[in-house]
Design a protein around this nucleic acid. Structure first.
Length: 313
DNA sequence: GGCTAAGTCAACT
DNA sequence: AGTTGACTTAGCC
């Protein structure tokens, strides 16, 4: 199977599903969340095939966003004008793609409805994750008495013991398709395999709430009377469709315990997936994704590239 | 052939 | 923009 790089598909349809493409787009931006229009731009910028028949594939893409539980919708902040919500990857969606095949997932990510008797305690995994991150954040704040450090926030040794497979393991999707300099591959992989960036997404989307509040470490996240939790997380986004977590990938065949070669450094990372704006789009101005995103990196106190692995499984 | 993921279309909000 | 359902196509067992 040929492994062409960016834009080498020319007008041919790239061997990626819409889910893959969407995940790529989301992963390409530092905030790990993109509005729909930016997802469109990302895909059209990199795959000429999708510059035509936009109505058709964009409808399909929207269908995928809504239909697949691996995507979560994050409403814009009130002070972030613009159309549409942000879209991000679900914290627990894991690596779903079969080795080598990015048109068909190895397993389907599905949010499982919680049974009624679990309802009183049915905090979503995502919400729980956010709570943990909030605790870490507060701990770091208390320790430093200042703004959050770039690294130490996520180096407190809590829930960071396992090697987290990035949502969709995007490195699984395209990592082997591109050759990049080793140093870049290393730094990129650090960010790619780091903990799920939802925390960062939310601090980005709702820093005014996430950073300052209100975080009773024992308080259940469901205390919010509005649509938003104490962490600025729109609960509806985490449990969209009225469903509740936990969300689990549903295997359709035995899942290998590990990806060969993934325990060590990954061989190759696509340059355009790097969080470095310069490397996002090596052959064309990188305008469509991170730089024009309403949620600017400067709004965040932490960078995804500095996050350490956080186990959510 | 059955199952399931993916893609498409369309109606609706 | 976003959701949902129906239907078709295709890959895997």
């Amino acid at each position: 199977m040929p492994r062409p790089g960016r834009n080498t598909y020319s007008d041919q349809k790239p061997p990626y599903s819409y889910i893959s493409l969407t995940a790529m787009a989301i992963q390409s931006c530092p905030e790990k969340m993109l509005p729909l229009s930016e997802i469109y731009k990302f895909i059209m910028d990199r795959f000429p095939y999708y510059r035509e028949n936009t109505q058709r594939w964009q409808n399909s893409l929207r269908h995928n966003l809504s239909f697949n539980d691996c995507f979560i919708k994050i409403p814009r902040r009130p002070d972030q004008p613009g159309k549409g919500s942000f879209w991000a990857l679900h914290p627990n969606c894991g690596d779903m793609f079969e080795n080598g095949s990015f048109l068909r997932r190895r397993k389907r990510f599905k949010v499982m409805p919680a049974s009624d008797h679990l309802a009183p305690s049915k905090q979503s995994d995502a919400a729980h994750y956010l709570q943990q991150q909030a605790k870490l954040r507060l701990s770091a704040l208390a320790a430093t008495g200042t703004h959050l450090p770039q690294m130490s926030t996520y180096n407190l040794g809590v829930s960071q013991t396992s090697t987290f497979k990035h949502p969709f393991a995007i490195e699984n999707i395209i990592a082997r398709e591109y050759k990049v300099p080793g140093s870049l591959a290393f730094s990129t992989m650090q960010s790619m395999s780091a903990g799920y960036p939802l925390h960062n997404q939310l601090t980005t989307a709702w820093p005014h709430m996430y950073n300052t509040s209100v975080i009773d470490t024992a308080a259940p996240i469901s205390m919010a009377s509005s649509d938003y939790s104490a962490y600025g997380v729109p609960i509806k986004s985490l449990c969209h469709g009225g469903q509740s977590l936990p969300a689990i990938p549903v295997p359709i065949k035995p899942t290998p315990t590990s990806m060969p070669g993934f325990s060590a450094l990954p061989p190759h990372i696509p340059a355009f997936l790097s969080n470095s704006p310069q490397s996002l789009s090596p052959t064309s101005p990188q305008t469509a994704t991170s730089q024009s995103s309403p949620a600017t990196p400067s709004e965040t106190l932490t960078s995804p590239s500095t996050l350490q692995s956080v186990a959510v499984h």
